[in-house]
Structure formats: C-alpha cells, structure tokens
Amino acid sequence: MNTIFNLSGISVSFDRHTIKQRSLRHALGNIYNRNGHYKTQALKNINLSIQEGEQVGIIGRNGAGKSTLLRVLTRVITPQSGELHIDKSKHIVPLLELGIGFQPDLTGRENCYLSGILMGYSRDDIGKKIDSIIRFSELGEFIDEPVKNYSSGMYARLAFSIATDVRPEVLLVDEVFGVGDEFFMRKCIHRMQLLMHAGTTVIFVSHNLDFLVTQCKRLIWLDQGTVAMDGNSDEVAASYRASQGIKTNNGNQIRKEISGIFSRS
C-alpha cells in the first residue's frame, strides 16, 4: 500500500488580523512598535499518515481544526512548520465546499467545464462526461440557465455531480451531504459507496457520527488542534461520545449557573 499523505509535526496558526493590520502604515508602525501578534493555533504538531484505499473520518467539535487539516491536505494552506508529503501521482479531488469555482453568471454547462478543469480534467474529458453529469444532477433544461438563478438544491446537485462523476483516486470531503432532498442525498451516498468499493481513498469531515462509523474503518478525533485519538472507528466514536457525555452529565451544574445569571439581572 502506498502512503498518500504523510504529515509530520504540522502546525498552523492564524494571526488575528484586523483590516488595519494589512496596511503599509501598520507595517511601518510595527518596525518601531513590536507588539506581540495575537495568534490562534489551529493545528498543533499533527502527525498522520493515510494509506491508499483507506476511508478515514475526521471528527471533533467546532473549531477543533478539522477544516484546517483538510485545507492543509489539499495544499490550500501552507503550514508554518512541519513536513507534508503528498503522493503527487494520484488524482486528488477536493470537495471542501459544494460548487467551488462556480461563477454565478455562467450557465450550469459552462460551470461544468470550469469546475471540471479545476478538478484536473481537460475540456475534452469533460465534453465526454457532460451528458452523464447532467443526467445525474437531474437538472434537465436548466443546465443552460445561469447558476445564480438556481435554487440551493439545484446548485448543490450540479456541484456534487461534477465532483463525483470524475473518477478521483483521492476524495476529500468537508461536510457536504446536508444538501438536496432525501432522495438525492441517498443517490449521493450510493455513489460515494461505489467510489469507495472501487478503492478510492476518501477523507470525510462530518458531524454525522453515525454516517462516519458506518462508512469508515478509521476515525481521527481532533481536539483543539491536536489529534486526541486515531484508530478503529467504533472505539474512537465511543470515546468521543463519552467525552462529550461527561459535559452533558454536568447539566445540573450548567442549569444552576444559568439560573444564577438570570436571578442577578
């Protein structure tokens, strides 16, 4: 098995910018006045390796660094420290958001071409696939309308059809299944399962724990930018639930605090 991603000591931190801090005036001022920057550490010393054909789920609370990690894997973010090795021979399709690269004024068909090119296909490739993309998206004649006139469901359907009609070897998915009606969602999940059976490496970020446990053998639990647990999906899901469970057991404590705030005001 080949290693697709290998991360060692990856750290990412964001400056808490204000608009002012992006000015030349501010930069010149800083030469004399070196106030410490406010930084948010999004990922701290992440060590991971993901093999070909694995299906990995990433879980964690909001702000745990899940999306940042996915952005590092897609090379959108260059980490400030650590080493990242990516198997460049593999065709990697990022699905961080539905409809990346869609231009609102272009028609659905034109957006297929632009979006398909971003996913690594040539115009000719897309020309061959376009009929099956349109069929799967169920858009029919709307395909020649500008996408700004689409409903959010139509938009999502087109975006999903493009991203999965292409046959990626590695697919990175960030919480994109909550779209479309139930029937389309089932179609999507069915298609994802076909891809996974065909050996596609898939990395999911999702809050839907049940979905991840059924689809992935391995789960990675991120907490405040670090890997809290990495392993068999049932075990990780159980520990994750338990950790959150402790907090919910403290419900009485929270209720007391809340009533305290109200009685004071």
Binding site: Q103, L106, E110, L114, I117, L118, G120, R123
Partner: peptide, 20 residues
C-alpha cells in the same frame, strides 16, 4: 497544468461574461 487550463478557461469566461 491545472492552473494553465484554469487560467485559459477563466479568461475566456470573463470575456464572454463581460459582453454577454
């Protein structure tokens, strides 16, 4: 290669949109 293809397609789209 992807960036080249994107640059070309996106430029064509921009021109198309400007005069559509």
């Amino acid at each position: 290669l992807i960036s080249w293809r994107f640059t070309w397609q996106y430029s064509k789209d921009q021109l198309k949109l400007k005069y559509r």
